[in-house]
Design a protein around this nucleic acid. Structure first.
Lengths: 160, 160
DNA sequence: GTTTTATAGTTTCTATTGCAACCAATTGCA
DNA sequence: TGCAATTGGTTGCAATAGAAACTATAAAAC
């Protein structure tokens, strides 16, 4: 009952945002809730941050990327990636070597231990995605994918 | 062209997530992109963080909330709200007083200066939302709202 | 070739965040 | 009443994130 406050009388003159119907706000809540749910799953078993998991997921899909390419694909900045990688390498979940033809670049891949963890976490993540989609009817699922395709900047664009 | 790496051959045995089709990942990219775009708008004029703006938006809509109620409505944790509020009060954008019947609770409202800022930022935020929705057809917009209604936890639930 | 200029990645410094511990006011209840 | 449990809010500390500066290699310009 504590939340039953009436909108401020100032509404008329000030036109405040109605957050509960404001798309950016709703998307943010939804996204954070989902990401956190998945993070809770893997953090209950492994001491790993969301950024580290994201890096691992990219390396599972694309072997041998450089740090910059990981940053591109995760939409994280390069400093965040660099730090996540050094933790992952220290923890023995990622192997890092140097590119043959360009000694600036690193060549990254999951280690055996990294793969073991990946193979345990990935199904949990997929299960959460299914849980989410189960709340929708089949046609809603189709529309959602179509809408995301339209709203998301094309592959390869950066956000910041 | 740098991004044309073929999926790791390990795919078959390991079934890595296809991030580019993984709903939680796509939502996260979308949400971050949008929030950052709006933040860029107001940060180009005002030195204010995303959390502070979010608090202001809630107080514009519901006057006299307590800090806890702000936390509830913004889905932020109470520490983040407490700190955002102390910055906002210091900056003179929010007035804080104490509840008459419960001296633990604060009573929060935008100051005159807060309202001025709000009245400039809110239209920019709405414009960004319109820009986003303009990418969709009318029926897609309807489906999007319907889908969000289904996926978002009901009003008043908490996420963490 | 040698000197810019650009790129990959790391480090440093600072600001933000998150958690736990904490204080103060209120409520529940013996 | 009086004392434990709860609630609203803040503070301290450790981990994290972001910006700018820095190192190293590589590519481009001259």
């Amino acid at each position: 009952m504590s939340a039953s406050r009436k909108p401020a009388p100032a509404s008329a003159e000030h036109a405040p945002l109605q957050l509960e119907h404001f798309l950016p706000y709703r998307l943010s809540i939804l996204s954070n809730t989902i990401s956190q749910t998945i993070a809770d799953d893997y953090q209950s078993r492994y001491a790993i941050s969301m950024t580290e998991w994201r890096v691992m997921a990219v390396l599972a899909r694309f072997e041998g990327l450089s740090a910059r390419e990981v940053a591109e694909r995760t939409a994280m900045d390069k400093v965040a990636v660099s730090r996540a990688l050094s933790r992952l390498v220290d923890a023995g979940r990622v192997d890092r070597s140097t590119h043959d033809e360009d000694k600036r670049r690193s060549v990254l891949r999951l280690s055996a231990a990294g793969w073991i963890m990946h193979d345990e976490v990935a199904p949990m993540a997929r299960a959460r995605e299914r849980e989410l989609l189960a709340k929708l009817d089949p046609d809603e699922r189709v529309w959602l994918v179509r809408i995301l395709d339209k709203l998301l900047p094309a592959e390869g664009d950066h956000q910041r």
